[in-house]
Amino acid sequence: MERITEGDQIRRWNDHIPLQWKYTAGVAGERFLQLLKQGKIQASVCRSCNKTYLPPKIFCKECFAQLSEWRDVPSDSGYVYSFTAVNGEIIALVKFDGVDGGLLGRLRKGREGPRIGIKVKAVFRRKEDRKGALSDIEYFERTGV
């Protein structure tokens, strides 16, 4: 095939693909988010593998058992596992004592800068502002010293 050397002999076609989605939260997600709306954090539990899943799952990824047991995760039992700064905000991966997994959220700036390992608690939005979404936790903030 002859080589194309003239720019005007090369064509392209511009178009776009607009798409919209509506996602269900799922069996575990629906229950988890309804609880968040009530200001509670819960995780699902696999006793035989000693695993506690947050966000909760309906199955244990290890033994693949169906999980029906859930337990409360105290909202003040978190700690900063890691963090980063995004557009002037601190985004942290918050883990909880005795729980596998964790939640992503904003970390409220304190007098001291953020550090890995500091204890934090989840601060929920006012009840009337909660939507049943992860953003019902307005931010995490440092507890104690």
Binding site: Y23, T24, A25, G26, V27, A28, G29, E30, K57, I58, F59, F64, Q66
Partner: peptide, 16 residues
């Protein structure tokens, strides 16, 4: 037409 389960949950149920 529409299920509550997420794709992961549907997969789990069939596999289980």
């Amino acid at each position: 037409r529409r299920m509550l389960e997420t794709g992961k949950e549907l997969s789990f149920e069939a596999c289980r």
